[in-house]
Structures are given as structure tokens and as C-alpha cells.
Design a protein around this nucleic acid. Structure first.
Lengths: 142, 142
DNA sequence: GCTTTACTCTACTAGTCCGATAGGATATAT
DNA sequence: ATATATCCTATCGGACTAGTAGAGTAAAGC
């Protein structure tokens, strides 16, 4: 299950990707446009900034903008950031592997085998979908 | 994240798939072999029985056995049963679709588009992995 | 340099869900 | 009858989620 944080983060990033990078967008405006509780969005955008995905500007005329080319912002990074590893079980994670204490042999564990396939399939989607490509798809259908 | 219930269910089913169907396996024995808390496993096996995946026999010599050919028991069914829909968001679910109240046009929603891809990728894995095929892979690596 | 504007940060809360257990009810072989 | 094993519901602590409160800090513009 995708958390609301991750969901709102993706929506907010898409909104910021539509914005002229020279003029940042205020939290307020992102919140209204994407129907996200304002205070909640604050926390989310702050986290995105601390991870180097967004840049911020304080004071009048301030707000948030993308810190990088949207082609380099991958959904995998965003989802992992808020919801943790993509793998359904820690022993199937590539980025946050943790061995099962009870499982003597992963290669012979059905859960491990199946969940590794799931994590690979999920990662193939999310690590190949950039903010730029997702934005194109959205605009194509609008 | 895969719940412990779903994880234990898969392990238990694999154990039962190794068993001669003529002699059922006791909860006790499944629990010991797979390192699952006994009382917790009771609840899980009961649910599997109520969904028609297992058959049970009470009294001496009783226990659980598979109710169907393991080729027809798909991981997708098991995971959905304990953890709900595979889709990360309800609007991307095939089996339990729920429209987003806030989203006027799904085709133009980035979250929807991306999460539909994730759900399809996950379903492709889990709905094509049967208990029989998973068991073969496990034994091949053992 | 003061005021307004807008982001920054930490703490907190209500509610929900998960993993696990307790304890008795029911069915069945012998 | 009695031992055996599943059936079933209630319960509980702890973790996590969604969201809020409120004070702090920095920058712009007069």
C-alpha cells in the first residue's frame, strides 16, 4: 500500500514539474492545486528538500522548485524515501537487505524466491519511471 | 510489505504440498517445521480452509491437507486473501477497484498511471506463480 | 531595520492495523 | 467415554499513519 505521503509527494512533484523553474511555487498553491492538507504537505516538501529533490526559497516570492532535471528524478527514489524498501520482505530487498534470522537457506525459501520476483518487477517499473516521463504521459492523456 | 500472516501461509502451504495427501499434517507439526507460532498458525490455516484452499480433519489422525491440486493454488490468491489487493492504491486495483473521490480523471493522474503499472507487474508475478511451480523451484535449489 | 512573507522544525495526537495469545466449543477416532 | 485435534471469537500491546500545532528562522521590500 502506497502511503499518503508518497502519493502526495508524487502529485506535488508533478505540479512543480509543470512550473517554470525560475519562479518557485508556494506550499499553499501546491496544496490547493493538488488537494493536499497544507500542514501535511509542509512536512512532505521539507523531506523532499532534505533529500536533494527540491530547492526552497524563503520570504516573499519564495517557494519550492525542483532541484534537478525531472529526467533524473525517479519514482523509485520517492517511494523508497517515504515508504521504505520496495521489496515485500527485507530479505528480498536490494537497497536495504536484511537476512531472515530463521531462514537457513534463502535459495531454498519459497517466500524469498517469490518475493524477489515481486521486488524485481516493482523496481523495474518504479526505477525506470522518471518524473519527466510520467509528466509526459499525464499530459498526453489530459 | 508482506504481512506475517501471508508469509506464514505460503510457508505452511509449501509444507503441506510436500506431504502425502492421504495423511493430513497437524498444525503442531507445520508450526514446528516452519517455525511459526502455533496459535497464530491456527488462525491462518483456518482462514485458508474457509477459502477452500485447505481441507481439515478433526480428531486423532487429523490435520490439514491441500484441498486442490497445487497447480491451481496461486500466490496471488493467498496474498490477496491476507493482505488485500495487490495494487498500491485502490484506484489501480483490478479485483477491488475503488475510485478516488478527489481525482476527476484517472487517465490524467500520474499516481494512477504509475501505480497501475506496479500492480500489473506484481500481478503478473503472483498470479502466474502456483504452489506447484514454487515448490519445484525450492526443491531444485535445496 | 522593521514588517511581512514563507519556509523550517519538533512534538504531539487520535485512530488503525498487526502479530500474537487465551480459552473454550465442537467434532471424531478408538 | 476419552483423548485428540480443529474451530472460533475476543482480546491486547505496540507500532505506524495521517494530520495538526505552534514556535523558530530567513529573505525581500519598503
Amino acid at each position: 500500500m502506497l502511503s499518503k505521503k508518497a502519493k502526495y509527494a508524487i502529485k506535488a512533484l508533478l505540479a512543480l514539474a509543470d512550473q517554470n523553474p525560475s519562479e518557485p511555487m508556494r506550499i499553499e498553491d501546491v496544496a490547493r492545486r493538488e488537494q493536499i492538507p497544507r500542514k501535511f504537505l509542509e512536512v512532505i516538501l521539507l523531506a523532499l528538500k532534505n533529500q536533494g529533490v527540491l530547492q526552497s526559497q524563503k520570504g516573499k516570492g519564495g517557494g519550492y522548485r525542483l532541484a534537478r532535471d525531472p529526467k533524473t528524478i525517479l519514482l523509485g527514489q520517492i517511494v523508497r524515501m517515504f515508504d521504505g524498501p520496495l521489496a515485500p520482505v527485507p530479505c528480498a530487498s536490494q537497497t536495504a537487505y536484511v537476512r531472515c534470522t530463521d531462514c537457513p537457506d534463502e535459495a531454498a525459501c519459497g517466500v524469498h524466491l517469490a518475493m524477489k520476483d515481486v521486488r524485481d518487477a516493482t523496481a523495474r517499473v518504479l526505477d525506470q519511471t522518471s518524473l519527466a516521463s510520467l509528466r509526459r504521459r499525464v499530459h498526453r492523456n489530459a
